[in-house]
Design a protein around this nucleic acid. Structure first.
Length: 296
DNA sequence: ATACCATGAACAG
DNA sequence: TGTTCCTGGTATC
């Protein structure tokens, strides 16, 4: 049996430890990234591949032309904003990666690059490590103006220091769109996805269909503080865990399983009050809320 | 072999 | 508003 050739702390799908009835096969839960994932990737990869010449290729082929332009160059900085990742190359160009629903990085801590697993769009090889990227929505090398344009259309990123939430408040306060819709809009706030949307609204006791303009200032401040806390905690944990240890019902020292890690998201009953969780389609995604904890 | 599903987002009209 | 693109684990035939 060969040992895993990737670092366990990299962003990888993993077997979940879902609590399930005896005899029921454990389900595999795919890990889809939100902002905390991208921030962690930027930090982890910075330690591995920044500051030295690296080989860049595209085993799958679709990134081949762009890879050629930076092959042998040095990444000077890796930056995350919301769900977007930027590689600042010594050539002056900027690599742009967006994982979308399916994108995944694999980190192989081996001297020699292993056989590519699946369709590896971008491969970056440093002396002792290979970083592979599969399935991204976006993976390009561009003129710096592209990064500027992307940043200009994104809202504040609560994971970053010194971000100004005022733009988020203003957009929400004058919008008749629902708050559940607005939180998924990356130009309102960058990095929130379907899980954090559900969980932040739950904690702030706001119904997802409430129009943005009907949220008062105190609620918007609470939302920003909640989102900031949740996403930053997600970077530390390397997973989404939004519930308190007490409410999870899991004893200290034991890992909280995915099924108990959220109050409302993808649950049948509210973790806090036990009511049946309601599902709605908002912004083309399934929204989850508790009708008792988050009344209309 | 095929269908379905997932924590995303761009684009056409 | 609807359509399309990306991947891969799981379920179903």
């Amino acid at each position: 049996m060969s040992s895993p050739d990737f670092a366990p702390w990299s962003h990888l799908s993993s077997r979940s430890d879902l609590k399930c009835a005896p005899g029921v096969t454990k389900r595999y839960l795919p890990v889809v990234p939100e902002g905390h994932t991208i921030a962690k990737i930027a930090r982890d990869h910075s330690k591995l591949i920044v500051g030295m010449p690296v080989a860049v290729s595209s085993p799958q082929g679709r990134f081949a032309a762009d890879a050629e332009r930076v092959d042998g160059a040095t990444i000077e900085r890796i930056e995350a904003h919301g769900k977007h990742l930027f590689h600042c190359w010594s050539t002056g160009e900027i690599g742009h990666v967006h994982l979308g629903l399916f994108g995944k990085y694999r980190v192989h801590k081996t001297d020699d690059p292993p056989e590519p697993q699946g369709a590896v769009r971008m491969r970056i090889v440093a002396p002792d490590v290979t970083v592979d990227l599969n399935g991204p929505t976006a993976c390009t090398v561009d003129d710096p103006s592209v990064r500027k344009r992307i940043l200009a259309r994104l809202g504040p990123d609560p994971i970053k220091p010194r971000q100004n939430p005022q733009r988020m408040y203003d957009k929400i306060a004058k919008s008749s769109r629902s708050i559940g819709d607005l939180l998924m809009d990356q130009s309102v706030v960058a990095g929130v996805g379907n899980v954090y949307r559900a969980e932040a609204l739950f904690v702030c006791e706001i119904h997802p269909l409430r129009p943005g303009k009907e949220c008062d200032a105190a609620e918007l401040e609470a939302l920003w503080a909640t989102i900031t806390g949740m996403l930053r905690q997600g970077v530390k944990d390397g997973r989404i865990l939004t519930v308190s240890r007490e409410e999870s019902g899991v004893p200290r020292g034991k890992r909280i399983p995915r099924s108990e890690a959220t109050y409302a998201y993808k649950r049948n009953s509210c973790l806090r009050c036990g009511s049946e969780i309601q599902r709605l389609d908002i912004a083309n995604r399934t929204s989850y809320h508790c009708p008792i904890c988050q009344p209309r």
